[in-house]
């Protein structure tokens, strides 16, 4: 008699614990929105990736389509090679443009994919050829000051 009520309590405990895990996975985590298993890999070379990290999101038109799996320096060209996992449901044309963008002013960096007009699509393991590097704030400020200085020089002549 005592064992059955005890079993009930322990069973409820285990169910509640697993339920909490499911809540964490579905409601708190993003397991419901992004499935890792059905994906293909693409690669892209960037001159400068800024603060891009692995696990950063990949978006097209603002929709999450994949994640960055690996960032490393390619020692042949001294460019950054970024490996991306893209959801199988989304196919991109061969002339897709990959930009490194920032969400908000100080937010996380992510890769934005802008599809081109090519009829052929990128296959697993292929390389995105058209890329644009991250905006580095120091470079922008440097360029701004340089152009300002040049402008004032011309004005004085």
């Amino acid at each position: 008699m005592e064992r059955t009520t005890l079993d009930l309590w322990v069973g409820a405990f285990v169910v509640a614990g697993i339920g909490a895990l499911v809540v964490l996975a579905m409601k708190v985590g993003n397991l419901s929105t992004y499935n890792v298993s059905e994906s293909y890999q693409l690669q892209a070379y960037f001159d400068n990736i800024g603060g891009l990290k692995s696990q950063a999101s990949i978006k097209s038109a603002g929709v999450l389509v994949g994640r960055v799996t690996e960032v490393r320096l390619d020692t042949d060209s001294y460019k950054a090679r970024v490996t991306m996992n893209i959801d199988k449901r989304y196919q991109f044309p061969k002339d897709t443009f990959a930009n490194i963008l920032t969400s908000g002013l100080l937010g996380e960096q992510y890769i934005g994919l802008m599809p081109g007009g090519d009829t052929e699509t990128l296959k697993n393991g292929e390389i995105i050829k058209k890329t644009q590097s991250a905006m580095v704030l120091e470079d922008l400020i440097g360029k701004f000051i340089y152009s300002k200085a040049e402008g004032s020089n011309e004005g004085s002549k």
């Binding site: 405990f13 285990v14 614990g17 909490a20 895990l21 809540v23 964490l24 708190v28």
Partner: peptide
Amino acid sequence: VISMPLLSAMFSAMGV
């Protein structure tokens, strides 16, 4: 060992 991950998941879910 079985209880600990369940308890911590419940702690996190409750905290959220």
